[in-house]
């Protein structure tokens, strides 16, 4: 197995780790929200300030969480991952 193959495997593994972590966070947050609704409706109905219940606040925060997770992924892949893959591609072309 060549050096460059090992290198690519390492870059790839780093991306899958991040991807799985972010997917797990999203699943955990969303399923948690649903379970909270299922188990404790009155809690989510708590009025924090007039017009704003805990449920509405958390719901909005989940939309924001989805945005933030996507930003983290796109930022990381655009800066780190793409460069490493591009280096890899160049190394292969020169090595050939």
């Amino acid at each position: 197995m060549s050096d460059s193959h090992i290198h690519l495997t390492r870059v790839a593994a780093a991306r899958w780790r991040l991807a799985l972590l972010l997917t797990a966070i999203m699943t955990f947050v969303y399923v948690g929200f649903i379970l909270l609704i299922a188990f404790d409706k009155p809690l989510l109905g708590t009025i924090l300030v007039p017009g704003l219940s805990l449920g509405i606040l958390l719901g909005m925060l989940i939309i924001v969480t989805a945005w933030v997770l996507i930003m983290i992924y796109v930022r990381w892949t655009n800066t780190h991952y793409d460069h490493r893959v591009a280096d890899e591609r160049r190394a292969r072309r020169e090595g050939r």
Partner: peptide, 21 residues
């Protein structure tokens, strides 16, 4: 009221999965 929000959120949370995987 609030119940509609559950649906809208559900339609959005699939997108991080789409981009990551």
């Amino acid at each position: 009221g609030f119940d509609g929000l559950i649906y809208s959120i559900g339609f959005l949370v699939g997108w991080p999965v789409v981009v990551c995987l």
